[in-house]
Design a binder for these strands. Structure first.
Length: 419
RNA sequence: GGAGAGGUGGCCGAGCCAGGUUGAAGGCGCUUCCCUGCUAAGGAAGUAACUGUCGUAAGGCGGUUCGUGGGUUCAAAUCCCACCCUCUCCGCCA
């Protein structure tokens, strides 16, 4: 949720909201309603003060004065109720409008639609495709079985098999170790959460149709560990001296992928279930931009050490999503498609999410909302897709990235004999 | 799944069954000061959060909050309803 006071007082904040698609008209109407709300609030509070005083007086009054005083207090109460109804109507209007306003973009975010992104850096080349694309190679190596996956669970489900499983676990363990070494606390979170957690994490109502629901138990399967990680300090007051609090979660992720029919149908690039190592940071407002750069640095280090060619983009305002004030995407070159595809992304939500989560920081500057950030460390399945193309040799063998070898006990994997 | 107990301020813990100077006793912790020749003991004062408004500020005056949301009442931590959570015993279980 946005900061109405900042919207009122801070021109930069307001410009950021406009960059994200909020019209000046909408903002002005919201601020006018909010002004009315605050005025009504003052009035209602005055009336309530009178009514409270009258009630307190009854407790102290002589018994024979009570009836008269009770009657008078009753009248006061009725007047309060009338004005409260008006206030509530205005407040509801303000809240609804405020919830619809996205988190303003940071001034460093390029303004425009999806294509307006800014390329920050390009690492490595754009190699030509290997003999087999990731989908065919996964089948050839006996690493993926989408056919049986579909028979068991439907399309976009696959079995992961053989060395691919060892590689997956190696990726998880390697990234986990790296992050623990950087002071992150490792977490295996619940993957089923309540509706209010989905709302507070900012995924409902907007992304509700992307989420699997267990109706009988009123629980929802998370699409990312970000959701339960955001819940860790919900409703808490954090001591500024303990920040930043850095967490790294490992979980399976579940996505309905509604509206992607016919898109990325080959292999395991886009599936309903995958595993992911996700970073999440609770930061002091003064630290959050430095923490955002840290997340990017870690993401880049992971790609560098795996030897993947990639570029980093500063996502344009129109493509940020409601919660992010700024977002970097790392996109790895996918040779078979001849284009860069997203592998990781990291966002600074500033105080947008914490306001809804009710997480505050208490420090020298008093009490303010925390800043939250999140970033992908390793989307495991998709990482395997990229590795299957970049580590694949002309003879069909697979060269395991050096850094993963200690974690899976493999260095060169040769394809099984053809049937 | 069955039976019971309980959720109060940074923490512990009274208050609830008789609704009214209780935003909440007491203790711990913390802050400041006094005493003390010294990391002890003692004494005094202060110490919830959020929010509106006025003020340059210190602060003043209000509102809301005793798990959450409703209800009854002039008045609710206290009464009623629903939900959430925690604990104990039994059952089940990787």
């Amino acid at each position: 949720m946005i900061d109405l006071r900042a919207l009122r007082d801070d021109p930069t904040y307001r410009e950021g909201a406009v960059a994200k698609g909020a019209t000046a008209d909408t903002l002005d109407r919201l601020l006018a309603d909010d002004a009315e709300r605050r005025q009504l609030l003052a009035e209602v509070e005055r009336l309530r003060a009178d009514a409270n005083a009258a009630s307190k007086d009854i407790g102290r009054a002589d018994p024979h004065e009570r009836d008269a005083k009770i009657a008078a207090a009753g009248e006061l109460k009725a007047r309060v109720g009338d004005r409260e109804a008006v206030l509530e109507a205005v407040s509801t209007r303000v809240d609804e409008a405020a919830l619809a306003i996205p988190n303003p973009a940071h001034p460093s975010v390029p303004t425009g639609t999806e294509e307006a992104f800014e390329v920050i850096d390009v690492v490595g080349g754009q190699p030509s495709p290997p003999p087999l694309d990731h989908a065919d190679y996964g089948d050839r190596m006996g690493w993926t079985d989408a056919e049986r996956g579909a028979a068991v669970s439907g399309s976009r489900f696959a079995y992961l098999r053989a060395e691919a499983v060892l590689l997956e676990l190696a990726l998880v363990q390697w990234t986990m170790q790296k992050l623990v070494g950087r002071g992150f606390t490792p977490i295996v979170p619940p993957v089923l959460v309540r509706e209010d957690m989905m709302v507070d994490a900012g995924f409902f109502p907007t992304d509700r149709n992307q989420v699997y629901e267990l109706e009988k138990d009123e629980l929802f399967l998370v699409g990312t560990a970000e959701v339960p990680l955001a819940g860790i300090h919900r409703g808490e007051r954090l001591d500024a001296t303990t920040l930043p609090l850095r967490y790294v979660g490992f979980s399976s992720c579940f996505r309905r992928e509604a509206g992607t029919y016919g898109k990325d149908t080959r292999g395991i690039f886009r599936v309903h279930q995958f595993d992911k190592v996700e970073m999440f940071i609770w930061a002091d407002p003064e630290q959050s931009w430095a923490e955002h750069e840290l997340l990017l640095e870690i993401e880049r280090e992971i790609l560098d050490q795996l030897g993947l060619p990639y570029r980093v983009i500063n996502v344009a305002s129109g493509d940020l999503g409601a919660a992010a004030a700024k977002k970097y995407d790392c996109e790895v070159w996918l040779p078979s498609e001849g284009q860069y595809r997203e592998i990781t992304s990291c966002s600074n939500y500033t105080d947008f999410s914490a306001r809804r989560l009710g997480t505050r920081v208490k420090g020298d500057r008093g009490s303010e909302f925390a800043h939250t950030l999140n970033g992908t460390a390793c989307a495991v399945g998709r990482m395997l897709v990229f590795l299957m193309e970049h580590a694949q040799q002309d003879d069909g063998s697979f060269v395991v990235p050096e850094v993963l070898r200690p974690y899976c006990g493999l260095d060169l994997i040769v394809p099984p004999a053809a049937e």
